[in-house]
């Protein structure tokens, strides 16, 4: 039995049903127990000592930056869609990343998709392929800084 999987599924069950109903809590306990025994080898969720620090970093450092970038991205899209001449200059570019783990790469790709003017197409080893709606520069360093600079630094602290 994998204790971390048990915790995650029990918590999700409690959010989806209720925190106070005794019957639901008992049923949820057994369901999560069975899931954590049967699905043992498919999950690699592991909590370590630094987990609370990561959650705090995620909520108080990553989320505000992410939401701010998303609002900026949406006003950018609104400006492009509503202006009569459609000011776009698209292109496919690639950037390199230093992140190693799969989960952090997923988070980086999602963040890039939701920030201004970029859409992740593919992730291969340590290279991200990106569709950029208005290509400004083709220089390696500049691209990296413009597209994923802040997120890479923050995610390194959160996930690795």
């Amino acid at each position: 039995m994998n204790f971390s999987v048990f915790l995650v599924s029990y918590f999700t069950w409690m959010i989806l049903t209720s925190f106070t109903d005794v019957k639901e809590l008992i049923v949820g306990f057994f369901v999560s127990l069975v899931i954590s025994i049967v699905m043992k080898k498919y999950y690699r969720i592991k909590f370590d000592v630094k987990f609370p620090i990561r959650v705090i970093k995620f909520v108080f450092v990553y989320l505000p930056v992410f939401i701010w970038e998303m609002i900026k991205a949406n006003f950018d899209v609104a400006f492009r869609v509503l202006s009569p001449s459609l000011p776009i200059n698209p292109g496919f570019v690639k950037i390199k990343t230093n992140l190693k783990k799969d989960s952090s790469k997923l988070a980086l790709a999602n963040s890039i998709t939701l920030t201004p003017g970029t859409l992740t197409l593919d992730v291969k080893e340590d290279t991200l392929f990106i569709h950029w709606i208005s290509v400004k520069t083709l220089d390696e360093e500049e691209k990296k800084k413009k597209i994923g600079g802040i997120f890479e630094k923050i995610l390194k602290g959160v996930f690795e």
Binding site: A73, V77, A78, R80, V81, I88, T113, L114, L119
Partner: peptide, 15 residues
């Protein structure tokens, strides 16, 4: 309004 499928996805997903 966008001209091709990639730009459409950009606008659609973000908004």
């Amino acid at each position: 309004r966008m001209p091709d499928v990639y730009n459409r996805l950009q606008a659609g997903t973000k908004a």
